[in-house]
């Protein structure tokens, strides 16, 4: 697999060079640590700080969600590896406005251990920490083991809600509660057609047969839950939506937000074809789409595949979803013109 790379061992550091330079108007390193980045326009006294983070290789996740109205700081690890406690603590300190700090990250053994160690260290420094683990991948574990599920692209919605809650001045406890609700009401299923390849190996992490696809694929190139024959786009969406409908208790007239996300190499053309069917399936149940995003929001290097996430809205979540934010990749009801030409 060919890639634009220099020394593969420098890939994360070089990406950080580019990323920090490119998003200079939104964020900056905390001190000299480039693995801890803080929003220029984020933390403020009295506001609960929102810290997100995880491994790299998911761009624009997580760094694209740092900015006014969304996350205050992000801690970044190596490719597909949780950051160590040190940058997470730095983020907590940088994000802290005296009202406590909320950690939101995906439920993976490595992330949990590192963020927990960081939470202990931050609390020793007098910063109250609450944590919400994202667990939106509904096929990664049966419903009896909801807390065992992993967090995937649906963290987009969970971050958005958490960022809005923090920005609105809610207390740490309130922020935690509503973020937990957002996570509980977010449902994601992913499908991969080809595995991703690490810069260091430039080989597929594993092989998916020429006529096969992997259902329930994780965002770290972990195998999914079952290997199946490739089917049509509509059949794939139907399988995904059937899984989601099995868990989501939506009534006719309910509203949802939809995210159709590329894992990296799947182009927009195909995402739109998937979105088309998602809309048909929701419309057939009289469920309305309040807002949608179609594109690259949480990738897995160069994986060929896509995921569909549905956030089952209620009045509070709808308000928080529409709350203004401005980050490198997400501007909603732009909070203020700031004179910088930025996408």
């Amino acid at each position: 697999v060919k890639k634009f790379l220099n020394n593969p061992n420098d890939v994360v550091e070089e990406m950080l060079d580019g990323l920090i330079a490119s998003h200079r108007s939104y964020l900056q390193p905390v001190g000299t640590s480039r693995r801890a980045l803080v929003a220029r326009n984020g933390p403020r006294p009295g506001k609960v700080g929102l810290v997100i983070g995880g491994g790299t290789g998911h761009e624009p996740c997580f760094v694209g969600y740092v900015g006014k109205g969304l996350a205050d700081a992000v801690a970044l690890g190596n490719i597909f590896s949780s950051p160590p406690p040190d940058p997470i603590v730095k983020c907590a300190v940088a994000a802290s406005g005296g009202a406590g700090v909320l950690f939101v990250y995906g439920n993976y053994a490595g992330d949990v251990m590192n963020f927990e160690m960081a939470a202990e260290l931050a609390e020793e420094q007098g910063i109250p920490i609450r944590t919400v683990l994202t667990t939106d991948d509904i096929v990664s574990s049966p419903v009896e083991d909801r807390e065992g599920r992993r967090g995937v692209a649906g963290n987009f919605f969970v971050f958005k809600v958490a960022g809005a809650a923090c920005d609105l001045g809610m207390t740490l406890g309130e922020c935690e509660t509503v973020t937990r609700k957002a996570n509980d009401r977010t449902y994601t299923v992913g499908v991969a057609l080809e595995s991703c390849s690490m810069p260091q190996t430039r080989r597929h992490n594993f092989e998916i047969g020429p006529d096969d696809m992997e259902l329930g694929m994780g965002i770290h190139g972990e195998p999914g839950v079952s290997r199946e024959r490739v089917r049509t786009a509509d059949e794939i969406v139907d399988t995904i939506m059937d899984n989601i409908f099995k868990e989501m208790k939506a009534e006719p007239g309910d509203r949802v937000a939809v995210l159709v996300n590329s894992f990296g190499a799947t182009p927009l053309m195909e995402l739109y074809i998937l979105y088309r069917r998602v809309e048909q399936r929701l419309a057939a149940k009289n469920i309305e789409i309040e807002a949608n995003w179609v594109g690259h929001y949480c990738t897995s290097l160069d994986m060929v595949g896509a995921s569909i996430s549905i956030l089952h809205l209620d009045r509070q979540l709808t308000e928080l979803l529409h709350h203004p934010c401005r980050t490198a990749i997400l501007t909603i009801n732009a909070p203020e013109a700031d004179g910088a030409a930025k996408s």
């Binding site: 949780s82 406690p85 251990m113």
Partner: peptide, 12 residues
Amino acid sequence: FLDAVGASTGPL
């Protein structure tokens, strides 16, 4: 070890 890797193996 911890400062360099994080991941699962770092804390472990």
